[in-house]
Every structure is written in structure tokens, then in C-alpha cells.
Simulated assay, not measured.
Amino acid sequence: MKADETTRLLEITDSRTVMGGVLEWKQKHEDQGYIMQKNAHLARALIAALRNRKARTAFKWVKGHRGHPLNEKADRLAGEAVAREIPDDLAISTPPNLRLSGAKLFCMTQKLAYRAIRSIKEKSLPRRKRTEKNLENIEAKIREGFGIYPTNQMIWKGLRSRHITYTVRYFLWMAIHDGYMIGDQWMRPNMSAELQERATCNKCGSTESMEHILFQCEAAGQQKIWSLMKDAWSHTKIPWREPGWAPETGLPFPETTSAY
């Protein structure tokens, strides 16, 4: 038995989601086989570690970014971890005697079953490298401009905001997935020479991309649109930053108590 397994601990966090996952919603998630929970593998490992301890563990919520020394240190360490080219090798496996598998039958609904099937199918799909690259650029741009560390899930969820029209939402979804027929999409082997000419911007002479069309092209209209956008943005009282999907600089990626 490890020494720290018998020592009483106070875990401090600024995430109500983490506290809820190991306290309030723990039984629900376990009964449903973690089908609806994000980062289920981390939740399983955390709960297993808590159950493996022989002493009491208390959780205390603190408001983030309010100068709490431990919370500020955690944010700094998280930023340093994200900036590493080689991620840390974390032990998140669950011991066999504490491992739960599957959902309880009495908890299963059509919605849960559909989500479980879709999750299994998604794991078998090939990775979309262009989508991953676009998401990395968007995340980096948000971190640089606003000091926020968004996840892919946060970006996709943001597209479903009621403040974004369906037309814009569809465009952003397609653009992130590189789903529009532009640029080197026309350079496929089965394309004729006439069609392959469409890969090049007639104005700039460079291979087109969505980033080029939106932010770099010198064709008439592009600068006008962003000028109008800048004027509209001034009403938000938030400093204007030049639009783009990639960072402009080489910056690195950068009280309630409960008990378990």
C-alpha cells in the first residue's frame, strides 16, 4: 500500500464539471456506461484512483483566475504541458478489480444506444489530417488573441450557438473540414488539365485555400469586407485583431467544499 493512499487529501479545483463527475453525477455516469460523458477514460481513471485510496479525499471549488496560488500554478503547468512537443505519459489505466464495463440495461434508452453505436463507428473512421490542422490553427489563434485554451469540443459546440445562423454554421463546418472544392482539391489525378487550372488564384497566382481566399487574396472585395467587419467590431469595445486561422506570432501554447 502506498503511503499517499492512507493520507487525507484536499483537492482544489476551479472545475465544477470535475467535481460533479466524481461526486454528484458519478453513479449516473457509471450506470450509463459513461456513454454520454466527455473524456470518459479520464473520469474512469480518476474515480478508480479515489476508490483505491484508504483515506478520505475532500474536494473544494475555487473561482478560477482569481489569484489563488495553487489554481494559478495549475494553469501555468497546464500551459507548459500543452506547449511540449512530446506529451507526458500519464498512467490513466484502471485496475481490473475497479473496472466497470458497459451500461446497465435498465438505464439504456434509444438515445444512449444510438450514441454508443455512433461512438464505436467514429473510432473506426480514418483521421482527417486537414481537419486536425485547421482545428490546431483555430485553437492557437484563440489562445493568442484571448488567452483562452479551447478544446476541439468547445470549438464544435461554439458552432452550434444560437447566435450563429445556419448558413454561417454550415460554411464554418465545411471550411474546417476542408470540404470545399478549392485549391489542390482540383489537382486530383482524375481531373482534366482545364479543371486543374482552377487550383490557382487568377489574381495572386498562388494555390488557393480557404485561408488565402478569406484573409490573404488581393482580389477586390476582400479588404472591403474586413473593413466593414472591423467597424462593426468596434461596437463590442473589445480590441480588434487581424482575422486569421493561424497565430500571428510564435507564442508557445501557452469556495465550496465536498468530500469523496
Results as ranks from 00 to 15, higher is better:
L90G: 00
L125R: 11
R99A: 08
E139C: 15
T131E: 14
R162S: 15
C204H: 08
L195V: 09
A91F: 10
A175K: 08
R143M: 08
G179S: 14
L159W: 08
Q185M: 14
V82N: 08
R188D: 10
K133W: 04
R169M: 10
A81P: 02
V82C: 03
T167C: 12
Q196S: 11
S192D: 11
R162V: 11
R118S: 12
D89L: 14
T94I: 13
F215S: 01
A116H: 08
I138G: 01
A83G: 04
L214I: 03
D88M: 02
L112D: 04
K157G: 01
C204T: 08
A113G: 09
K203P: 00
K203E: 15
Y166R: 11
M108D: 00
R115A: 09
C107R: 15
D178W: 04
P95H: 07
G158C: 10
E85C: 05
R128L: 10
P126N: 03
D89C: 05
P126S: 03
R188F: 13
G102I: 04
F146N: 03
A199S: 15
W173R: 04
A81W: 04
F215M: 02
S124K: 09
S161G: 11
G145N: 13
R76Q: 09
K123H: 02
A81V: 06
S101R: 07
R188E: 14
S192E: 07
E132G: 01
F215K: 00
G183F: 01
R115I: 09
F215E: 00
Q185N: 15
D178L: 03
N97R: 07
V168F: 15
N202Y: 10
E139L: 11
F215D: 01
G102K: 02
C204Q: 05
F171I: 07
H177M: 04
I182S: 00
R198I: 04
R198E: 06
H163D: 15
V168C: 12
G158E: 01
A199C: 12
D75L: 13
L112G: 05
I117R: 03
G79I: 05
R143N: 11
R115S: 13
K111V: 12
L195G: 08
D75Q: 06
R130D: 14
T131R: 11
S192F: 04
P189I: 11
W156C: 02
D184V: 09
I142P: 06
K121H: 14
D75A: 01
S161T: 14
F171Y: 14
M210K: 04
I92K: 03
H163L: 12
D89K: 10
L172Y: 05
C204V: 01
T167D: 14
E144R: 07
D178K: 02
I155Q: 01
P96Q: 12
